[in-house]
């Protein structure tokens, strides 16, 4: 099995690499930042739709039992509005990674946060459509959302790889096993 350069990128370097990969231009970040105030206005409606979807599905509703819904609404609203924060650096990626790590800790399958993009995307795109440059803003929104998706997935992969590497004694062997070579 060929060793890949990407395997040498760990921890915060992973986040920096993703930010570099997405290559958001200053124009795009400015367009997103200009929508931040409006994002806070539509965030409550988005979170309502978000949790209505989760409560309508038994397997996702299970994760919402016995937890403060006010707190969850607040967290998702904050997550949504931060998509439009206008600064997408390593610190942004680190905050998003923390959210992914929380999902890992509560044992939430990654398919659920990814599926919820079905709710998030239309709200974000509607908001971007109100921008001074709607086409560019929609494109920028999709880039930022893709960055978040990548970070979410990385949180899950990091967790699995770390546990397997600890168990078998090394990351290289763990990667080998995960690719089915073992």
């Amino acid at each position: 099995m060929i060793d890949r350069a990407s395997w040498q990128i760990h921890d915060e370097a992973t986040l920096g690499e993703l930010v570099e990969l997405m290559h958001l231009s200053p124009v795009e970040t400015a367009l997103m930042g200009a929508l931040h105030a409006d994002a806070t206005l539509i965030a409550p409606a988005m979170t309502q739709a978000f949790y209505a979807r989760l409560f309508a599905h038994a397997q996702t509703a299970e994760y919402l039992q016995g937890v403060s819904m006010d707190r969850l609404h607040s967290m998702v609203a904050e997550w949504f509005t931060q998509l439009f924060c206008g600064t997408y650096d390593a610190e942004y990626a680190r905050r998003r990674m923390t959210i992914g790590q929380i999902h890992v800790r509560i044992g939430l399958p990654v398919r659920y946060p990814l599926a919820m993009l079905d709710i998030v995307m239309p709200y974000g795109e509607q908001l971007a459509a109100k921008s001074s440059d709607p086409t560019a803003a929609v494109g920028a929104f999709r880039k930022v959302l893709a960055l978040d998706v990548a970070i979410f997935n990385q949180a899950y992969e990091d967790n699995q790889l770390r546990h397997l590497a600890e168990l078998v004694g090394g990351e290289r062997l763990a990667r080998r096993l995960l690719t089915g070579m073992g």
Partner: peptide, 17 residues
């Protein structure tokens, strides 16, 4: 042999753990 090699290394890693 490749699969046995990976499995043997896994056994040793788990045993050490």
């Amino acid at each position: 042999a490749d699969r046995v090699g990976a499995v043997a290394a896994t056994m040793m890693g788990v045993t050490r753990r």
